[in-house]
Design a protein around this nucleic acid. Structure first.
Lengths: 255, 255
DNA sequence: AAGTGGTCTAGACCACTCA
DNA sequence: GAGTGGTCTAGACCACTTA
């Protein structure tokens, strides 16, 4: 403090605030504990509420905090590791033992980007299977699975009624194809309204979008999956074992 | 800019604004084009600048816009697919042909989370190799590689001077170990000050943090890599082929 | 009904880029 | 020096949860 450190680059208040709060979370709070409300916190730090919120937003993005309207701000548990496909072992979605729950299935024209990957015409309808993933009792992901009718030729549409039963029927048919390979991509997105509801978040919440192409029949793209994971609570793992125990941030402890 | 439909379920203004802007980007702008400045845009839509900024922030998060202080807001090109390790083929970092550029290497005590993964004592120093990744002329990632001295026993510290040469020497020694496997995890984070500078972004910018554990010597963790990728411009691909051609959003066209 | 976080406003000033 | 995005303020009201 004594020497005049050249602060040629003045730190934004919200950035400094975030650091202070982060350290307080490490030393003075334990998981699940409720923080003081935003108005009190802002007053305590002598900043406007908007500035305080900017710091809280960052901490929530990093998975340190959880905010719920009408309730309050709580200290978040460490992110859960969610296995996204064992890299060595390619399996169709819906194979025995995956923790996805089929919700329903419809016939729709896919978005242009998916249609291009599937090499179907822009107008062609495909099976769209909706599934959700639940781990540790919490919803972590919502998925849209696009399956051209040509990938499940023996499916008789009348067989299954609407809803989950129909979704399961489509997935069951899919298993009959021989899976030759798959490609995955991960990027940042924001939750659409329907995804947000399924994930128990507000629309626009940050999500990790995992796009998977499934190949069969000699290189043909037989299905495309677009899964959105809650970015605040999930760490996607790609290892050969499911639950890796590496965290970006050190473990926290109450004092 | 038609009439504003009155919604029975009042959509937040910034959310509606984002939708309108997103459609305008698709139909009325082409990649690289400069948008009107924020004050003009806010006036045009009849909202406060803060509200307009909330919409722009989301679009930037989704990789649709790029904002630079002192310059302006431009329409971003589609995200670049960045290959993050071919899943079938495990190789050490620094192997021939990867597009990482070693920056320097030091001996430091790693953060607690990394020390735990490396099974080193909290006080033990390890080699910390800094690298950066450049594709298509743009910096996309910054990496910290933690390598216990026991993983590179034959490295004589005096051999190489500081800087990139020393980093290359450490990586060269690492190749002599037999790599037995690796585990990856991806999560959302925000750029630390040093990462941000390397990535040409402001501190706090959203990044995809890729943590990789490298196994050798019968299951021992021989190295840990923490790489931060620009979330706004990158789509991480894990497929067997490098450049997947699936986009979350449809292609844009100028009108 | 009370209390919380979420949205929104209308200003102000600062840091940065570029002509 | 003009123009841009980035930060910050001090309010207001709304949507939601809980008691």
């Amino acid at each position: 403090m004594g020497t005049t450190q050249l602060e040629t680059v003045p730190e934004p208040k919200y950035w400094h605030l975030k650091t202070v709060l982060s350290e307080a979370l490490d030393s003075e709070f334990s998981v699940g504990e409720i923080l003081p409300n935003e108005r009190d916190l802002a007053a305590r730090f002598g900043v406007a509420r908007a500035t305080l919120r900017q710091a809280l937003e960052q901490l929530e993005l990093e998975g340190r905090l959880q905010r719920r309207r009408g309730v309050g701000t709580t200290v978040a548990p460490p992110r859960v590791g969610v296995a996204v496909g064992t890299t060595e072992q390619h399996v169709w979605p819906g194979a025995a033992g995956d923790d996805w729950q089929p919700a329903d299935s419809t016939l729709e024209a896919p978005p242009a980007s998916v249609a291009a990957a599937l090499e179907t015409g822009a107008e062609d309808t495909v099976h769209v299977v909706r599934r959700s993933r639940v781990t540790h009792g919490q919803p972590v992901a919502a998925e849209l699975l696009y399956i051209p009718v040509s990938s499940v030729p023996d499916l008789s549409a009348i067989d299954a009624p609407a809803g989950a039963a129909r979704a399961r029927a489509v997935l069951r048919e899919l298993q009959r194809l021989e899976l030759e390979g798959q490609e995955r991509a991960v990027e940042l997105g924001s939750a659409r309204a329907d995804d947000a509801k399924m994930l128990d978040r507000l629309p626009g919440a940050p999500v990790l979008v995992v796009t998977t192409r499934y190949f069969a029949d000699g290189g043909r793209t037989a299905a495309v999956s677009v899964a959105t994971y809650r970015a605040d609570t999930c760490r996607l793992t790609f290892g050969d074992t499911g639950g890796v125990e590496i965290h970006e941030t050190p473990e926290r402890q109450a004092s």
